[in-house]
């Protein structure tokens, strides 16, 4: 493993498999009466969250505590950022207190790379702007592997706001790396330019995109990032791209439905699909803790000996 986990792009297939296999072992710890191992005893992990995130922050915190790390979460409100201290200064101040790892969530793409360049601590990217959310993609892959026992050759269709989604970028990189056929689908106004160069197929017809899919992954329509008029109304979006039972019926009978959360019911996904038998949305959340334990454990080891290589 490298020093930091910034991007799926930095991981080899072997490293991804190692993380997923380790996740398998970590998941068992969560099923014990005493859900704690002493592995990261004496290690300090700082969760630096510049964006509100209940799910990801909680998931990291639980993962850290289950590995016995000393953990503290610093929610940095936007207002205090505006008052002055730069990300670099905040990070250097935290560094001065000798943490071992920093988990960073930030609204700017590349924020984790910036920290990686100035910090000795291991940096884990917990979502940077519209760039990547690597641990989400890893937990998605783990969940798919659980259900399908493979990733290679699967048809995975990702539907939603492709443009603003960091989950899309991490998932597209990871799933194509492991040999899945990935189709991404959304309104033409929300398709990132050149995305097909990642090896994904782009479609603007959801009916066509979900046909014969093994996995349907929905992306949140992020009202808060919709500064332009990307589509006329939520109602029209749902009618054109929303995942309904009728659309799910076009996929394979054993299709699974995934969503990174938080869901907008009645926008990108109908409630009866979210709560349906093929939905693995809550499993994703459960697996998130184990994946993050695996990442924390693997990153806590020695760095690849770059001098020797």
């Amino acid at each position: 493993m490298k020093k930091d986990l910034l991007s799926i792009a930095d991981l080899s297939c072997e490293e991804i498999t190692l993380i997923l296999d380790t996740t398998e072992a970590m998941r068992e710890i969560g099923q014990r009466p005493i859900k704690k191992v002493p592995t990261l005893r004496g290690k300090t992990v700082v969760n630096l969250f510049y964006e509100p995130s209940t799910r990801t922050r909680t998931s990291f915190e639980i993962a850290e505590k289950r590995l016995s790390a000393d953990t503290l979460s610093i929610p940095v409100s936007t207002s205090s950022v505006l008052k002055g201290e730069t990300l670099v200064d905040t990070a250097l101040n935290i560094e001065a207190m000798q943490p071992d790892m920093i988990v960073l969530r930030h609204a700017s793409s590349g924020a984790a790379h910036l920290l990686s360049r100035i910090c000795r601590s291991r940096i884990i990217n917990a979502g940077d702007g519209m760039h990547e959310h690597p641990t989400q993609a890893l937990l998605d892959a783990f969940t798919i592997r659980e259900h399908k026992h493979r990733i290679e050759g699967l048809k995975v269709t990702i539907v939603g706001d492709l443009l603003h989604s960091r989950v899309l970028r991490s998932d597209a990189l990871l799933l194509t790396k492991l040999g899945a056929q990935v189709c991404v689908c959304g309104p033409a106004t929300l398709v990132p330019v050149g995305i097909e160069r990642l090896g994904v197929r782009v479609s603007t017809s959801v009916d066509e995109a979900v046909a014969d899919a093994d996995v349907i992954m929905l992306l949140r329509i992020q009202h808060e990032r919709m500064q332009g008029a990307f589509f006329p109304s939520v109602r029209e979006y749902f009618n054109t791209f929303g995942m309904t039972k009728a659309r799910v019926a076009r996929a394979r009978p054993d299709v699974i439905i995934m969503h990174p959360g938080p869901m907008n019911r009645g926008v990108e996904i109908a409630s009866d699909v979210a709560d349906g038998p093929y939905s693995v949305i809550l499993e994703q959340v459960a697996n998130g803790v184990a994946v993050r334990m695996a990442v924390l454990y693997l990153l806590a080891g020695g760095v690849e000996d770059e001098a020797a290589a």
Binding site: M1, L18, T22, E24, A25, M26, Y297, A300, G302, A308
Partner: peptide
């Protein structure tokens, strides 16, 4: 230096 030992179930 060096990777973490592999964890199994």
């Amino acid at each position: 230096v060096g990777p973490q030992p592999v964890v199994r179930s």
